[in-house]
Design a binder for these strands. Structure first.
Lengths: 354, 354
DNA sequence: TATTAGCACTCTTGACCGCCGAGTGCTAAC
DNA sequence: GTTAGCACTCGGCGGTCAAGAGTGCTAATA
């Protein structure tokens, strides 16, 4: 009896899941609420609309679907999508042509800046949504060298280079004028002393040793350290990302209300909400999804974000992904994001493996 | 007789102009076609609606106004706006508060990159439209020094610094591996040889002398020159600009058709059309306007662009401006752009005048 | 007991209609 | 040259109506 009940419940669930799957696929395709008739016709399950209506009522009780109004079909809820992407979806392998496109797009340059930009453009063009690639985290970057160039008497151009090949520059004002050779001396000292440290570690040591130098009345040293501090302090905070194809999102009538769309775009330029999400998905193993309100940010509550981390020299270096309407073709998008991350990883390798 | 006719025609014109002015001011305020009744009431000219209708018919013949349909009021055409901004508009001086806002916003940093960004943000927030600031033209920049850092055996990080304090970096692949000291030697040679030249001049000489070095079989020299060429070649082309507040444009129902707005946004990321316009207005003396189709670009045909050049050390260095709907408050926007350009000029000065 | 047919009900959508208000162009009078 | 008057036009708004799609419920069926 018990056994039978369980198995019967299970079969109900399987059938319901199958129906949910078809419903979502259908809804993703057409963007319109799916009714019982349609489902009866296209589910391959040979059930009458009436039966399907019963199942739908169950799914609605479970919070997996909802109907916009009494006499409309059903549309998936966020939980519905979640179940779909977690257990139901059958991913579509990426066509060879698109893989080729990705490869040629990514293997044509060695400059990380250009690579990141290409990746984000490719993501956007392959998915017809907005692509984004996070730039390697500052904190994890390691200091390589610094340089000071005088612009005017009390104004210096500072250039900071990381081992990874990123260059950051900043203009700073200093209290007194230094000669060119003094500046070179400062730079040499800092370079010898700190080269190879992570930015974060360097920051900590800088602060500590600045204290020390002040106590020792070592003016020169203190000055040099202060200058360095001025440069790396802003660099240490804040990751950044590059985005492409934002305007693609304007085509989805899911965002027909302008203010919603505006909110979204603003959060793209504001960046910190998105960065926080990307930051979180750095730790995840493979592709990760934030569906609708799952992200926790109001601006994104009509969107889904699909991300995957990428590596440089087999260490996680950043995250890339796409943003689109909740109703997106997950079966196509997930593989695209996945593969792009892999390809970017190999393209970013500093020493050639082959 | 002739005299009388002329003077009479003139007075008609003056009256018509006055009416055109009021009409445009009104239309800018409300965004709705202005009818003869309204004009009769608010023009201050004590004319009956019927008379005004006659004048309107004349203005329509002259192509200065048009009516969207038979029984609507009139709205200005591009030529109408043009006449308005050229001869009719009475500019509203900027309130002291806003000037203060600009000053504190611009005098807080010395870094040109940050300055440019602040300026564009300020423009956007003061006008509630999109602000943009062009970054000093590359060709006019002068070369100061170059540096080569090895990333891996055949991959170099190149850093190029201009006298103006801009830093450009790029990763390049080279044919053979060089030692660190060789790279330093290359850099020294280039720095001594070319420092102080404009990028354009440097480019020309590089090409010429590369030829020469090849003929002389001076391998080292040729290699060094080729590397330099790889760096400055991409830098020499293409100016760039920074934009802020694009989403402000989404509030104007003038851009209610999404595809029009999308076209506009795309042309912002595409950049070259806008750059071409900005480029053109570098030569102009003060504030310059492109109204609607005047710009010649389809994406901008619903917009106006208000620009003004700014100086660095009393040489024109770039252009800034705002983009908004054709129906914008020119009387307020023109002074804002004008003053921002002036303030940015003084903020950008490399040696302090005071 | 699960499934299905049937039916009444609900809700959206688009078409059609008529009316009102705003505004015009024209003509004739001032 | 200006104005009053009048006929006309057009967009917008609200209401009604029918069609279509889909639901929930109940009772019959396998």
């Amino acid at each position: 009896m018990t056994v039978k009940k369980v198995s019967s419940e299970l079969s109900v669930n399987e059938r319901a899941q199958q129906l949910l799957k078809v419903l979502i696929e259908r809804y993703i395709q057409d963007g319109e609420p799916v009714g019982s008739r349609t489902l009866s016709r296209d589910s391959g399950l040979d059930l009458s609309p009436a039966t399907i209506r019963n199942v739908m009522a169950d799914l609605e009780d479970l919070g997996l679907v909802s109907s916009p109004h009494t006499s409309a079909g059903r549309i998936p809820t966020v939980s519905g999508y979640r179940m779909f992407v977690d257990t139901l979806v059958t991913l579509k392998p990426l066509e060879a042509g698109k893989i080729k496109q990705l490869e040629t797009g990514l293997y044509s340059s060695a400059d990380p800046k250009i690579l990141v930009e290409s990746a984000s453009k490719l993501l956007s063009s392959l998915t017809h949504m907005a692509g984004l690639v996070m730039i390697p985290r500052r904190k994890q970057l390691t200091f390589r060298q610094i340089e000071f160039l005088p612009l005017s008497s009390k104004r210096l151009l500072t250039i900071l280079v990381t081992t990874e090949g990123e260059v950051h520059n900043r203009v700073i004002d200093v209290r007194k004028a230094y000669t060119a050779s003094q500046l070179v001396q400062f730079a040499n000292m800092l370079n010898q002393h700190y080269s190879g440290l992570s930015m974060e570690a360097m920051h900590k040591r800088l602060v500590r040793e600045m204290e020390q130098a002040r106590k020792d009345m070592n003016q020169i040293m203190a000055q040099a350290l202060e200058m360095a501090e001025q440069v790396i302090d802003p660099e240490i905070r804040g990751d950044d990302y590059v985005m492409a194809g934002q305007t693609n999102l304007m085509d989805f009538n899911d965002f027909s209300q302008m203010n919603k769309l505006r909110e979204l775009f603003d959060s793209f330029t504001e960046k910190n909400e998105i960065l926080h999400l990307l930051d979180g998905s750095m730790l995840a193993e493979g592709v990760q999804l934030f569906i609708g309100e799952e992200s926790g940010y109001k601006a994104l509550d009509q969107c889904s974000l699909v991300t995957a981390p990428y590596q440089v020299d087999s260490k996680v270096a950043g995250v890339l992904g796409v943003v689109g309407p909740t109703r997106m073709a997950y079966d196509r998008v997930i593989p695209i994001v996945d593969i792009t991350a892999r390809l970017l990883s190999t393209a970013m390798q500093t020493r050639k493996a082959k």
